[in-house]
Computed example of a mutant assay.
Amino acid sequence: MRLTVFGATGGTGRRLVDLALAAGHEVTAAVREPARLPERAPAAPAPHPVRCDVLDREQVAAAVAGADAVLSALGATDGGPVCGTGVPHIIAAMKAHGVRRLVALSAAPVPDRDPGDRPLYRLTVRPILRALFSAAYADLAVMEGEIFTSGLDWTVLRPPRLTDGPATGAYRTALRRNVPGGYAISRADLAAEMLRVLDDSAAVRATVGIGY
């Protein structure tokens, strides 16, 4: 499958690119600075780097052209939140090029309330997180709204706190709700789930909670 990955130099994006290449996919890495992509051995499979600022419609359209599916591992950057503006550009490019499948990364605290939240999380942790990272979560909420009304075959993953731990494969997932008690997930396991749901028909037009 030909995949375009946005946010390919981020903590989750790098792992996602590695997994996709190892699985035999052709990967276009849409990044602002291609030089930041990790160096690879000469014989190792490598992504096709495309210089792309997600705030630039034309660059996004060029990165999406020819893809079978798009994965967004975008998040807040040093310049501030970009998902609420950048992902609508991705959606427009996908529609223009006839690309249907979109997997995007959001966050567990984004919805005001969630059926998977335990009382302690709902009453204490969620309000604190939403107060501390209000701009980032507001940006992701805008992004989710654009995705939900896009008409594409989308999946939105909502992870909790991210860690740099190893891939375990021992994570839990839940459709259309957060994972009860799932307060953390490694970026490696999150990337694995992003790749897995590409072919999961049950996850199409659904949010997916994930956590340990």
Rank of each mutant, 00 (worst) to 15 (best):
M1N: 01
R2H: 04
T4E: 04
V5N: 01
F6K: 05
G7F: 01
G7D: 09
A8I: 04
A8F: 09
T12Q: 04
V17I: 04
V17Q: 02
L21V: 07
A23C: 01
E26I: 01
A29R: 07
A30K: 02
V31Y: 04
E33F: 05
E33Q: 14
P34L: 11
A35K: 14
L37K: 03
P42C: 08
P45S: 05
A46T: 14
A46Q: 15
A46R: 14
H48P: 00
C52P: 03
D56I: 08
R57W: 00
R57Q: 15
E58Q: 15
A61D: 13
A61P: 06
A62H: 09
A67G: 02
A67R: 00
L71K: 09
A73Q: 01
A73Y: 02
G75P: 10
G75F: 06
G75N: 04
T77A: 04
G79R: 09
G80W: 08
P81M: 13
G84A: 10
G84T: 07
T85F: 07
V87G: 10
P88K: 06
I91Q: 05
A92L: 02
K95P: 01
A96K: 15
H97K: 03
V99L: 03
R100D: 09
L102Y: 03
L105R: 13
S106V: 12
A107R: 09
P111F: 06
D112V: 10
R113M: 04
R113Q: 12
D114G: 12
G116L: 06
D117R: 08
T124W: 07
V125I: 15
P127H: 12
A131K: 11
F133W: 10
F133T: 04
S134P: 00
A138T: 06
A138Y: 05
D139E: 04
L140S: 03
A141V: 03
A141H: 13
M143K: 12
M143Y: 10
E144K: 12
G145F: 08
S150A: 06
S150R: 12
S150W: 14
L152S: 00
L152H: 03
L152W: 02
L152R: 04
W154Q: 01
W154G: 02
W154H: 09
W154F: 15
R158P: 06
R158H: 13
R158M: 11
P160Q: 05
D164G: 15
G165S: 09
P166C: 05
T168Y: 09
A170E: 14
A170H: 12
A170Q: 14
A170T: 15
T173R: 05
N178P: 07
N178G: 14
V179G: 08
G182P: 12
Y183E: 08
Y183D: 14
I185N: 10
I185R: 12
M194L: 15
L195S: 01
L198P: 05
R205Y: 01
T207S: 10
G209H: 14
G211A: 09
G211I: 11
